[in-house]
Structure formats: structure tokens, C-alpha cells
Computed example of a mutant assay.
Amino acid sequence: MSVVSLLGVNIVKNPTKFLDKFQLEITFECLEALSKDLEWKLTYVGSANSSDYDQELGDLLVGPIPVGVNKFLFEADAPNVSKLPASEIMGVTVVLLTGAYDGREFVRVGYYVNNEYDTPEMNDEPPSKPVFERIVRNMLTEKPRVTRFSIKWDSEDSAPSEFPPDQPEADLAEDDGEQWGAEELAHEEALLDEEGPDGDDVEMGGAEEAMAVDAAEKIDEGAESEDLEAESSGESDEEDDGDEDAEMGEDDVEMGEASHKPTTA
């Protein structure tokens, strides 16, 4: 079970100018006293082709954390435009909010960000050199991508299992090796039947959907993810108990830039 649970992230002043600060109001719940601070970071993905252009915009330590519901405002600077590839400033990129405890990341929230000029004329015929004062930054908050990780908190009991639980009853089950092999053989034969007349594989549908933007992969890197709607609108993030036991675990949201004490909601 996660000690810290994200309840909501509200993006303040969105959309806004590209050069304005990022402002995120983060609400989370802490179930037990923690001996260390929570660390929040905000990262801007400057290029879909290379992580060399990623910029850490803010790093904030939040603590001490009282038990209960807490809220704080996280502010971070806009990206340093001199370090961004000019060809990838406009259009869609990604901003990542991460939360960690004692150096262990427990949550990652990814937002798509769309950068465009403030007039249709400039978007239709963009200037050869970006005019940053005229660029509008819009964080697409309807469906943030949230990835949660199971980590060890203060107690050993909170650490994720290193090995799967014992299943002594599995040794008593009937051996299904032959049945499994038969199913695999039938599957392979079905695939051969679907090949074209010259032995080429039949074209499979959904190929376009399988091609994702490289920058978006940073959102899901390291664990399974899930879509959460209306998280940035201030609504509580209510999930079924079964959903909270995702592949790597579950928790909350992040961001930062100095030591900060949360307020009790």
C-alpha cells in the first residue's frame, strides 16, 4: 500500500504565454508520518529525438509532511529557449511531473503541451525565427498520463515483494504441458494459413496507431501507465482498489524548486 496518494493536480493559468512560469497546485494524502521530505521535479522535453534537450525546470523539497490531506503550489521557470532546438519549439511536446521519496520515484505524471502562435496568420505562416513573446503554451490537462511505482517508504513492511508469494497448491495441479504445446502449434498453423500467396505476411491493421511519438514514451518509461481524467481540474483522483495495484504500484504527483512546507487542506 502506498503511504502517499495523489488526489489532484490543478494547472494554474492555462493556457498561458510560453515564457511564463509553470504553476501547479498539488493535493496529496499522507497516511503515516514520514521521516524525510518529498521531492518534486518538473521536466520539459525539448526534443522528441534526443533526451539531451530535456530541461529540469524546478526541484522542490516538501516537508515535514503531516498525516492527512496536504496541498502546495509548485512554481517552475519556463524552459531556457537558448537550449531548445528551433525546429521543435512549435507543436506538441511533453512535460513530466515526478515525485520521489528518499531518492525513489513513486509517481510520474505526463502532460502533452501544445505550443502555437496567438494568431491564425502566424500559425499559417510562421516566422523563420521563433517569436517567443507571441507563443502560447497550452497544457492538455484532460487526460494526464499517470504512472505509479511501488517503493519502500520508512518501514520494511512497505517495501515491494522481492519474490512472488509461495503457491504450494501449484505443485498439485495437473501438468498442462502437452495442452499448452498443442495450443501453441495450432496458433502457429493459423498464422501460416494467413500468409499471402508468396509467403508474405498479411498486412495487419492498426499499424498507424502503433507508431507513437518518441517524446510520449518518456511518460510511460519504467512502468505501466493509466489515463486519469480531469486530474488537473481539482477533482479527486478516485480509483478502485484493484486498479491501484498496477504493475509497479501506485501513488501521486510532483514538482519543485526549494524546501517548502505544505498546508493542511
Rank of each mutant, 00 (worst) to 15 (best):
F106L: 07
A216H: 08
G249L: 05
G196A: 08
L19C: 06
G46C: 00
I135W: 02
T98G: 01
V146T: 08
S82G: 09
L191G: 03
S259F: 14
I89P: 00
D240F: 07
E88L: 07
R104I: 07
P164Q: 00
A182H: 09
Q179I: 14
E244T: 15
E208P: 05
A33L: 13
N115W: 07
H187N: 10
A216G: 14
L228D: 08
D240R: 13
D59G: 14
L31T: 09
V95E: 01
M204G: 04
M122G: 05
K17W: 04
L19V: 10
F28I: 09
D124P: 09
S50R: 03
Q55W: 03
S236D: 15
P262N: 00
A170K: 07
M248C: 11
P164R: 03
E39R: 08
L24D: 04
A190L: 08
D201V: 09
V12W: 01
V113N: 02
K41Q: 12
P126G: 02
N10L: 11
G63W: 04
L24A: 13
V81N: 04
L84C: 07
N10H: 09
G68D: 00
F72C: 11
G46L: 01
P64K: 02
P197C: 05
V131C: 13
Y111L: 15
K36N: 13
D118E: 08
G205K: 10
E247D: 13
L31C: 10
D220N: 14
E178V: 13
A186E: 09
V136S: 04
V109W: 00
A182D: 09
P160L: 02
D176N: 12
M204Y: 02
V131I: 13
P120Q: 01
G196D: 07
L31D: 12
D20T: 04
N49D: 12
L228R: 12
D176C: 12
E208C: 04
S5V: 11
A190H: 07
E32H: 07
A76P: 14
V4H: 05
A190P: 12
V12H: 00
V146M: 13
F163C: 09
V107E: 14
K218V: 07
A216L: 14
V107G: 13
D59A: 15
R104P: 04
V113Q: 06
E238Y: 12
P66C: 10
R137D: 01
A265V: 14
D176I: 14
D214H: 12
I11V: 09
V202D: 07
G99N: 02
N10M: 08
P79Q: 04
F74H: 12
N115K: 03
V67M: 03
L228Q: 06
